[in-house]
């Protein structure tokens, strides 16, 4: 008798804890990025005096524009199950190309167009190699990193190309009404990215390929074409990021953007995109970008040395990837 009731009790408790855990898990699953962002925002507002000001927040946004544009491109690539380690050096190449063209007297719109096209061609090349030769994206893009860096250095002979054109400098520094131009460009890219990913066939194929390439092929999807397209699109978008950066710095420098691919990857993963492909959203990436940017800004405001910043960011990225993998495991065995 006694024995019986005790087991019953046990069962009930058991039930309650699992329910509670399950609920927590759902919140964690659906909103971990949002919660992280909100926490970071609150903490920064408390421990620094300058963080929560309109000027500073606009500044954070403007500085995040380049990262955000890159991260949109990276989101597509990671959802297909790939990665682009050369995004940083693509940034440098497009920066020096657009500066070089403008210094040589090419009209600004044409210079931008050519740069974006070259960016697209770089992506097209990588995508073709990846999808037709079956070489892992990791290897192809890593090799591309040094090739592109080399090109940027050779082209500039190691010194930045300074741009004096006042109109071009407006792209990264100017305003359209009260809003910084860079932010507007960022929003346009994000919206295009979102529509492409969520509302077009191409976008749906991107997810499918990242999840089950064989099934995609059997449904008549031209897997090679879609993959190549993703890298080409990524290259063109990253070139836009490079142009914005060059404009902000008023120069194209072969050193600009080195290491920024890691920030972009971190933002995408923080935003909930599955590093193994098949899952992810542009809205998530935007939040990931916000986290990285606020972290950068806050650490600067706190006068943390750049070496320490590197370490802190490394820890945050590791944490993000770890959370990501827990989520994946949890999903597999709820």
């Amino acid at each position: 008798m006694l024995n019986n009731t005790s087991t019953n009790l046990n069962i009930n408790q058991n039930k309650q804890t699992t329910n509670w855990k399950q609920k927590l898990y759902v919140i964690f699953d659906k909103g971990s990025t949002t919660i992280g962002l909100a926490l970071l925002f609150i903490i920064m507002s408390i421990i620094t005096t300058d963080f929560l000001t309109v000027d500073n927040l606009l500044n954070v946004m403007r500085q995040s524009a380049v990262l955000c544009i890159m991260a949109v491109a990276m989101t597509f690539i990671i959802i297909t199950g790939g990665i682009d380690l050369s995004a940083g050096s693509q940034l440098a190449v497009s920066g020096v190309v657009v500066s070089g063209l403008i210094v040589a007297g090419v009209p600004i719109p044409l210079a931008i167009l050519i740069t974006v096209l070259i960016g697209g061609m770089i992506g097209l090349f990588m995508g073709t190699v990846i999808s037709t030769q079956n070489i892992p994206p990791f290897i192809v893009t890593l090799a591309m990193t040094t090739i592109l860096s080399g090109i940027a250095f050779v082209y500039t002979e190691g010194t930045p190309v300074v741009i004096t054109d006042a109109v071009f400098r407006q792209i990264g520094r100017g305003y359209l009404g009260p809003i910084p131009t860079a932010i507007i460009i960022m929003i346009i890219v994000a919206v295009i990215g979102h529509i492409l990913l969520s509302h077009t066939r191409f976008g749906r194929y991107v997810y499918t390929i990242g999840d089950n390439e064989e099934a995609a092929r059997l449904c008549g999807i031209n897997v090679k074409w879609v993959k190549t397209g993703v890298y080409a699109f990524g290259g063109a978008i990253t070139a836009i990021a490079g142009i914005v950066l060059a404009s902000r710095l008023s120069s194209g420098s072969p050193n600009a953007g080195t290491g920024s691919e890691l920030d972009a990857i971190a933002a995408v993963v923080l935003g909930g995109t599955n590093l193994f492909g098949g899952e992810g959203k542009i809205t998530g990436t935007l939040m990931g970008v916000a986290i990285i940017s606020i972290l950068n800004n806050g650490l600067n405001l706190l006068n943390v040395s750049s070496y320490n910043q590197l370490m802190i960011k490394g820890v945050v990225i590791l944490l993000a990837v770890w959370l990501n993998s827990i989520k994946a495991r949890k999903k597999a065995s709820v």
Binding site: R201, Y207, T208, D211, N212, E214, A215, L218, C219
Partner: peptide, 21 residues
């Protein structure tokens, strides 16, 4: 599992996959 399903996607995605056109 290997050549048919797109496991992370919804039932709707899986049904409409070759028919998106």
């Amino acid at each position: 599992k290997e050549t048919g399903l797109v496991l992370k996607q919804t039932v709707r995605d899986n049904i409409s996959l070759p028919n998106l056109k």
